[in-house]
């Protein structure tokens, strides 16, 4: 009797899921279509540009000492808006929902040390030219015995949900992830670092600039730098916003040309070397 019930439940669930998934796919098309329509319909010049950021992602985007959002990406975007005569706004996204929030129109782009993933392009998002060479590193405690990823066999590693590090551990680095004792996904970098500081994990798998910035500000940590595969940062726009993307890229290039870009970069020495526009 119980087995029959379980079977019925499982079938019901599968049916429901398939049914809903079907609907989900359809609505996805319509929602992505909706923003274009409004964009094309309103030929009126844009007045406000809302930048979607991860508010806890130094040095690219974070809450500054004065209580306003700042960081390399934020400063560049602000300069872009000035150049184009747009009102600049910041919207803190939930990083693991960032693309949903972008589609929903809560922000006009996601621009926050975002690693370009093939899956984003496949899903139809407009992605800018890459502007930063990134790599993943392992952050460990200075006094820990670990020197390489292999040393972390059977150990626990934290990674932020929704980051490229997490994607890598799920796909290209699946073998490495399986060699770890446990991959702990936290919803912010602060929590990843707290897990490490509090000895709940042995390492954090994280973007290099973030790790560099953390090591510079906190004592007792070091970085295991291994080649986990190269990746690049870019800006994501909704599928119909190719023109918007071009506008922003044009403005960035103008900032590079007049030296503003380099001036901003100079404030962030940890990442300066990997900025593609300055190479």
């Amino acid at each position: 009797m119980k087995r029959v019930l379980a079977l019925v439940l499982a079938l019901l669930m599968a049916a429901l899921t398939f049914g809903l998934a079907g609907c989900g796919a359809k609505t996805e098309e319509t929602t992505t279509a909706a923003p274009d329509a409004t964009q094309e319909a309103t030929d009126a010049p844009r007045t406000i540009f809302t930048m979607g950021i991860d508010p806890e992602y130094p040095p690219f985007s974070y809450l500054g000492d004065d209580g306003d959002y700042t960081g390399f990406d934020v400063e560049v975007c602000k300069a872009v808006c000035e150049k184009l005569g747009w009102e600049f706004k910041v919207f803190g996204v939930n990083w693991d929902e960032k693309l949903v929030q972008l589609d929903a129109g809560e922000c006009d782009c996601v621009w926050s040390g975002m690693t370009i993933l093939d899956s984003m392009k496949e899903a139809g998002y407009v992605i800018s030219n890459p502007y930063f060479d990134n790599e993943q590193v392992l952050l460990v405690k200075e006094d820990s015995p670990y020197q390489s990823a292999a040393d972390l066999k059977g150990k626990d590693v934290a990674v932020q949900l929704g980051t490229s590090g997490e994607s890598l551990l799920n796909d290209d680095l699946k073998e490495l992830a399986d060699s770890f004792g446990q991959v702990v996904t936290a919803d912010s970098f602060l929590k990843c670092f707290t897990e490490l500081a509090g000895n709940a994990v042995d390492a954090v798998f994280v973007d290099k600039p973030v790790a560099d910035s953390y090591v510079a500000k906190n004592e007792g940590y070091r970085i295991i730098d291994e080649d986990f595969g190269a990746e690049q940062y870019g800006i994501a726009f909704r599928s119909g916003d190719a023109t918007l993307c071009e506008q922003v890229e044009g403005a960035v290039e103008a900032l590079v040309a007049d030296g503003t870009y380099a001036a901003i970069a100079a404030k962030y020495p940890d990442i300066e070397g990997n900025l593609l526009y300055l190479k």
Partner: peptide
Amino acid sequence: GKQIANSQTSFV
């Protein structure tokens, strides 16, 4: 579920 949603860019 969130992890899968991320890696698959999927709502399922």
